[in-house]
């Protein structure tokens, strides 16, 4: 019987390598894919993937329950932002604050979403909404920097991101529910 991530994490806390392997099998694609998208570098993505999963193994107590997928996405994005910070030379744009990993919201929607459906839903957004969302999330830059690069007012950027996320949520329909 397939165990959910919370049950597997309980076993990981008890140093069960098989449970850890099951977590890896279930989640490594989003971890590696997200890191690869943010860093544009397969080697760096491997390093981030390894760091994220070994963090899970060595410090499973950092997961306080809730949505494991959301938590591991935050771990991955934050770790990738760390890599981007190291890469950034002085004087370049400020990177956004890392998202608090303990705030991974209590919902079970993510586990049921098919990646292809998410891509299709993203494709339904108008470019002026999709692009700042992708640039902000995967590019690891602040909304100020998005505004500067796109040459549109900051308030407009915020509005487009908000509208885009709401439209995306609607497009995903019942697959994303809180």
């Amino acid at each position: 019987m397939t165990q959910d991530a919370g049950q597997l994490m309980e076993r990981v806390r008890a140093r069960d390598a098989d449970a850890f392997e099951a977590l890896y099998d279930a989640h490594h694609r989003v971890v590696y894919g997200l890191a690869a998208r943010m860093l544009g570098d397969a080697l760096a993505a491997e390093d981030v993937t390894q760091a994220v999963f070994l963090k899970i193994w060595t410090a499973p107590e950092l997961f306080h329950g809730g949505n494991f997928a959301a938590w591991i996405v935050r771990l991955t994005r934050n770790r990738s932002l760390d890599v981007l910070r190291v890469r950034k030379s002085h004087g370049e744009a400020e990177l956004p604050e890392t998202l608090p990993e303990e705030e991974a919201v209590e919902d079970t929607a993510f586990a049921n979403i098919d990646a292809d459906n998410v891509r299709k839903a993203l494709a339904t957004l108008p470019p002026e909404q999709r692009e700042p969302i992708e640039l902000g999330f995967f590019g690891g830059i602040t909304h100020d920097e998005i505004a500067r690069r796109s040459g549109i007012p900051l308030g407009t950027v915020k509005t487009r991101i908000r509208m885009g996320l709401k439209k995306l949520r609607s497009a995903l329909g019942t697959m994303v529910t809180v």
Partner: peptide, 20 residues
């Protein structure tokens, strides 16, 4: 508002999922 949108952002991350 945050919880509703955060779940959607998690889905955005899923769009980058690597292939098999």
């Amino acid at each position: 508002e945050y919880e509703a949108l955060a779940a959607t952002v998690t889905a955005v991350a899923r769009s980058a999922e690597s292939c098999t």
